[in-house]
Write a protein that binds this DNA or RNA. Sequence first.
DNA 1: TCTGGGGTCCTAGGACCC
DNA 2: TCTGGGGTCCTAGGACCC
Length: 419
Amino acid sequence: MKKKIFALIDCNAFYVSCERVFNPKLNNKPVVALSNNDGCIIARSKEAKALGIKMGVPLFKVKEIVEKENVIVFSSNYTLYADMSRRVMNIISEFAPSIEVYSIDEAFIELTNMNVDYESYVRQMRKVILQYTGIPVSIGIASTKTLTKVANHIAKDDESLEGVCSLVKHENLDQVLEDTNVADVWGVGRQLSKKLIANGVFNAKLLKNCEDAWVRKMMSVNGLKTVSELREISCLDLEETSATRKSCCTTRSFGKPLVNLDDIEQAVTTFARRATERIRGENLTASTVSVFLRTNPFDRNRYYSNSSTTTLSYPTYDTMQIVKTALQLTKIIFRENYKYKKAGVLLSGFYEKGTETKDLFSEARYRSPKLMSAVDQINERYGSDTIQIATECQIGKWKQKRKNCTQSYTTQLDNVLLI
DNA sequence: TCTGGGGTCCTAGGACCC
DNA sequence: TCTGGGGTCCTAGGACCC
């Protein structure tokens, strides 16, 4: 069988890079971007990494370094990041016959049947992405997706490679794998790496040489795929057509703990509305609604967490219907005298709109599409959350912390920079 | 004081069937 | 003294990814 060729394009410190595009003064300075609610650090510039700031740490734990070293801190601006991502992905699409957008800052492409010199071809792509968007990327090339991940790490770590690393005709792949910690292999997370290391499997080369039966027992079927891919046997194809999703969840931590049912209902209403708007945008109806509530899990003294799920008597994308259901579920699981920190609404059991099983009353139920599409159009034009459900329309006590957020430079006309 | 959000997949175990 | 075998489906929990 002909060897396949994949490339993985990964934006460097993506959120930080987005901020730098619109504020070049940030170049060469330590910069970090935060998760929602200004909780954890989820993107770091090279300079911030060099200060020892780890991925995913809560901001308050590195406060000293941040203050002492003048680290510049941004609240996350997903509107901006999503739009910049779209631009990067569009450029990548022009360079490859097929693309899998794997996350907001990553994409796989397949180069198998392209009659080009892979390395110089992706270098050209890298140059164009930087020129058109200002976003620097790293690219790994290899014969399996798992190996492109390894290649990508090397491209990021070794500056002499100028952003591109190919393992396609690498003389000593085994040496590369030996230098790769087992925990850094794609598909090996915290728990698995602990187990593997306890069994003497420290690096990717040792993992590659494990027996299949042992791997199957240790890491289940997906582990077997990972190991095969380390052996240059491609098991994971490019997933171009994003399969219709199976669930859609909107969840937030609250800016401060909530005690009253009223306040929580307000938040749940917003979550249910947003989730419904999202599935409506994908032309799906949902048949199952779940709500969950929980207190702060870091405070074990008075911890409470619960969820409740119900199946609707018919699938719908009607905001009012889903909000009503979500509020009923909220009342079921709510308990007095707890400080709630987080809640969420999960929709699932999807149907493509129109493929639901019809019954005698279907027509009567579908009286809302016109109203829903009017709402969607208004929100599209004037900004999401322009039209809300009445219970949301007070000052939300649950609103998140977002101390230092930049503007929507690329999606709001009045936020466009003046030069 | 302060600890993200959004997904997918696999497995084990229980309920149920004949 | 002694209690089958083979199957499906569902769910909760745990693992992984970014």
